[in-house]
Amino acid sequence: MKMNGGLGPEAPSCAARFRVTGAGRAPGLLLVLLLSGPAFAVADPKEMLPDPQQEARAEAIGSQLRCLVCQNESIEDSNADMAKDLRAIVRQRVVAGTTDQQVIDWMVARYGNFVRLKPPLMLSTALLWATPALGLLLGGLAAWWGRRRAVEQGGPAPLTAAEQARLRELTGAE
């Protein structure tokens, strides 16, 4: 893994992050980007496209693309030098009139599917995309199984006198 120095000439915020993490000084807190310098993306107003619609499109595309030298940040959110370059390329291509998918494909051709924050549906990500449906399916099955088990056990077992007294106590005044 490339550490400090390998990221960009103007030591971007991400580099600081690598440095600290590399030194084993990760704090024990449970919050995102704790060590990240505050990313201050699109820090330069000149970077933005003059046409607000094109700029919005570029931002939408950029937020789907991962900043390669950062941890789980899109190129829109990152202040890293590399992210800045990629942002500029996205904007150039948006102005040139390419489709969103073409811009993403252009990035994938260079950096692989790693660059996509939303992985495409393919064999290796089938399980990932199936998770919501699988969760519902398994949950439904468990509920059905639990109900069948309860019915098989004869439904609400006849309460003993002591249990009935307890039940009255439990449900209280209701």
Binding site: K2, M82, I89
Partner: peptide, 8 residues
């Protein structure tokens, strides 16, 4: 970038 380089 065309070479897929993300750092040096």
């Amino acid at each position: 970038i065309d070479w897929g380089v993300y750092g040096v």
